[in-house]
Design a protein around this nucleic acid. Structure first.
Length: 455
DNA sequence: TCGATCACGC
DNA sequence: ATAGTACGTGATCGAA
């Protein structure tokens, strides 16, 4: 109806059962196509559509239809263990609280922690004292808080990752078929729903167990390939900073090298702590840094964090020029863009509201980096998809997780497929610095080992 | 039903 | 004075 309005067409014949419906529909449709096509061409986005997003539809559709094999028995074992742990923790928490309450309710938990037990309120949300993990970790000297943190972790795993996931296994294929959404993110990344297979736990040992349930069928292995530091490599390329570029060409640990530059050390003098601080700085640079955010991330005063940032930009001067230029360009043109010319409009760069304006500035710095990484892996998916087809291999793409591809490969194709995937991903779009891809394989998504080129 | 909070990934 | 790291999805609570 809104299309009819838009094109000043009559709606009176728009009943699908009417004989004229198809003709009216087609007339409107053609107008829409012409309009959108012109808009894309006028904005230099036609090749992004025709050469990247449109052909990617086929690859994604095949990935969704094929699905990834999931072992329900493993999920059920994990679920039962989590259930037992939750019951124990629930009893412990009730005993420590001196009463029963809904631990899942931040409101009820807040009453127990901050009123009954008198713990200090370190941070508030709109609706009351915050009970986020960040706050609870500060209070975890109290035994109930440690138990609540553990309860939260276990409850999350059980509700999101064992019980819900098991329900989504198709009875026909025994597989889970996610939906990849190509048109929801502001940066050009994909998203995944029903279920989201882009946020399966990996960081903790307990969480990682979920990945053990994602398996390869008989005679196959899962093959994983991930880009190493793709966003920082893109920053080196896009900014033209030769110090950063040289760091990647040298092949050494990038965070240790950043630490050496920022703290004025030799590479072999860098301690774990300094490396970890440098990692937080690199992380902050990609996300559009603020001294406040960095200070919070690595427990520094704001002034110290600002010194680190100043020192970083002194060592990588072109990065500073580049990021400032993005904000300037965003203000002037109204948008920033990625390698593929994908745009993000940022009207708030001109807002009088400081919060909105600085948020937009960080977005202006992050979007070309994150979005260009998305462009590159999408292009790599197409190249891998076509190369596998051309080589007549049975290896199939299963998942994309932002900087990682998951495939399923018959054992007798492992060697060929591993080399093909690595080559296509690394050579997809030559930059001023090399793109490096790690390749892993194994019987499930958790127990993978590095692919050895002798194999 | 929907906003808020929390927690998982990159 | 002015918030407080980018981008997502989902479970749960509790008010409407």
């Amino acid at each position: 109806e809104s299309l009819c309005d838009h094109f000043h067409e009559s709606q009176t014949t728009m009943d699908p059962k009417e004989p004229g419906y198809q003709a009216v529909y087609l007339r409107i449709y053609k107008k829409v196509v012409a309009k959108v096509k012109k808009e894309l061409k006028d904005n230099d986005l036609w090749s992004l559509y025709e050469e990247l997003e449109l052909p990617l539809v086929t690859a994604l559709a095949e990935m969704e239809a094929h699905g990834i094999l999931v072992d329900p028995k493993k999920l059920s074992v994990i679920s039962q263990e989590l259930e037992a742990t939750m019951e124990k923790l629930t009893e412990t928490i009730y005993a420590e609280a001196g009463e029963e309450f809904n631990i899942n309710s931040p409101k009820q938990l807040g009453v127990i922690l901050f009123e009954k037990l008198g713990l200090p309120v370190l941070k508030r949300t709109k609706t009351g004292p915050s009970t986020s993990a960040e706050v609870l970790e500060e209070l975890s000297d109290h035994p109930i808080v440690a138990s609540v943190l553990e309860y939260r972790q276990v409850a999350k795993l059980k509700s999101t990752y064992t019980d819900s996931l098991a329900e989504l296994i198709s009875p026909e294929t025994k597989r889970i078929h996610t939906t990849f959404n190509q048109t929801v993110t502001a940066t050009g990344r994909l998203s995944s729903t029903h279920p989201n297979l882009q946020n399966i736990p990996v960081r903790t040992k307990e969480g990682r167990r979920i990945r053990e349930a994602f398996v390869a069928p008989e005679g196959h292995v899962l093959l994983m390939a991930d880009y190493s530091q793709i966003e920082l490599r893109l920053l080196a390329h896009l900014s033209g900073d030769q110090v950063l570029a040289e760091a990647f060409r040298s092949g050494q640990d990038i965070h240790a090298q950043t630490a050496a530059e920022v703290f004025g050390l030799d590479l072999d003098e860098v301690t774990d702590e300094e490396r970890s601080a440098a990692k937080a700085i690199n992380f902050g640079i990609i996300y559009g840094i603020s001294s406040f955010g960095l200070a919070k991330g690595i427990n520094l005063t704001r002034a110290q964090a600002q010194e680190y940032i100043d020192s970083y930009f002194l060592r990588y001067p072109m990065v500073k020029v580049y990021l400032d230029g993005l904000v300037e360009q965003g203000k002037k043109e109204g948008y920033v863009q990625t390698l593929s010319k994908r745009r993000r409009y940022l009207p708030n760069l001109k807002s009088r509201n400081y919060a909105l304006r600085s948020f937009a500035a960080r977005t202006a710095m992050n979007t070309p980096i994150q979005g260009s990484a998305a462009d590159i892996i999408k292009l790599a998916m197409l190249k891998v998809y076509r190369a596998l087809k051309d080589a007549g291999l049975k290896t199939r793409l299963l998942l994309q997780v932002h900087d990682e591809l998951v495939l399923e490969t018959p054992l007798d194709e492992l060697h060929l497929a591993a080399h093909l995937v690595k080559k296509q991903m690394e050579e997809v779009y030559p930059l001023d610095v090399p793109l490096k891809v790690g390749v892993f394989y194994g019987p499930n998504w958790r127990d993978v080992k590095s692919f050895d080129y002798e194999e």
